[in-house]
Amino acid sequence: NRRKMVSPGVGEHPLQYNYTFWYSRRTPSRPASSQSYEQNIRQIGSVASVEQFWRLYSHLVRPGDLSGHSDFHLFKEGIKPMWEDDSNRNGGKWIIRLRKGLASRFWENIILAMVGEQFMVGEEICGAVVSIRFQEDILSIWNRTSNDQTTTSRIRDTLRRVLNLPTNTIMEYKTHNDSLRDNSSFRNTKISL
């Protein structure tokens, strides 16, 4: 059930990779089993050029205007935003917790850095997620190989630069294996200053 690959239109600026936007929402009381997660996640569309990116992105609700427990995901085409996907199973993610009111701006900056190939880590980046929650919002960027410290450090340093984070911002890394084990995306993380 893979959708047809998109390609850049005439005169458009191609991206290094095609990306797919996804949206998910769940009732917080329901347990987040991987099956219910997959049922609650929807593809919005794919983009292959800068212009296609803006056409799609400009029509989406800003994440800061979403209510409840919802997420936007932007992943390389062909990679599902799930821990179990082949591209993700040995990977992990950097987590940045945001106070309310910052999600829209930080989400835009992180995805512009991703589609513009600012991270310089080869094929390592899988996608980015903004998670709207009740007390705080959470930004994360997923990479393929959680035990490659050169890569994860470079991603962390690029995040600091492109998001203009203060040097004392707490950043947390969590492997998808650990997320699977405790069935939680954001608990029991490894803190890095």
Binding site: E12, V50, E51, W54, N109, A113, V115, G116
Partner: peptide
């Protein structure tokens, strides 16, 4: 191969292009 790299300023500039509407 060559990587296609765009900085934020360039990407934001493309937003107003008629092709991006």
């Amino acid at each position: 191969g060559t990587r296609i790299i765009y900085d934020r300023k360039f990407l934001l500039g493309c937003r107003s292009s008629p092709l991006a509407k």
